[in-house]
Amino acid sequence: MIEVFIDIILLSFIAVTAVAILRMTNLFAIIMLFGIFSFLSASLFAVMDAVDVAFTEAAVGAGISTVLMLATIALTKTQKEKVSVSHRHWLPLSVVIVTGAVLVYGTLDLPAFGDPEAPAQTHVAPYYIDKAVEETGLPNMVTSVLASYRGFDTLGEVVVVFTAGVAVLLLLGGKHRISDTGTNEIEKNEHSLILRVVAKFLIPLIIVFALYVQFHGDFGPGGGFQAGVILSAAIILYTLVFGLDAAERVIPPSILRILASLGVLIYTGVGIVTILLGGNYLNYSVLGDSKVAGQHLGILLVELGVGIAVFAVLLVIFLTFAGRGRP
């Protein structure tokens, strides 16, 4: 009962936050509210037993998205949204209300929230829950489904992330012509001693935590996606406190580009190796002496590839945004 209560309260919070995002016009406040929105949804995911998802959402939504959006409004130098009177609001509003009504009508036939007999719970999920631990030797079913049973999906996702990183580089990576974009916020801020000392102390801890998440992801919540995001957040913190030039001395962009491709290459490479060893593409069972050992090794390698790719791509995206404002 208490879980339902918490669930309803969090959902109401989220709804209120979304309306506030819609009604506000100050972009900075909107972005901050969006961070709160992400955190609320992460707590909601945790309440609904999706710990891995909550972890990812907390790291991505509140960390990386917010920073990227702030970088965008710094680059576009827009503080407020212009509210034009010429817009007719009744048309979008009626479209939205009609669509929403149709969708709500559709939910009436859905099984109730948490119903163990729902179709989603009775097809392929019981197989994963029964067999995953025995077939892969990993207690975290999300990791084994992610990297092994649904390895093709995840490969596709990693390639999408990689492609998005390449596209951002193509759009913003080069030298730009307009010189009047002003000085970079990140460059000119001289941060106080306290901030620099605490950052120096924290960044190694964050990196260690990211490695823990990477390699403990087989046993607890975590894995390559989360670890990559946390690791890039550590470097983003470094950039924000010590400046872009210092960060580029620590990790040169050329190395990052190689790392991004390396991550995808590790993933696809594991697939090629399994073919050469006589299995199907991404069938890790042939990698080790026993099936379980092979699965374990394959999942570890693939997660490593995912972690490296996500880390490098997110960092490339951030550094490209940050470097755009450089005079």
């Binding site: 939504g61 996702e157 996606f225």
Partner: peptide, 8 residues
């Protein structure tokens, strides 16, 4: 989980 990272 993957959709969140692709989303960002």
């Amino acid at each position: 989980l993957t959709a969140i990272v692709v989303g960002v």
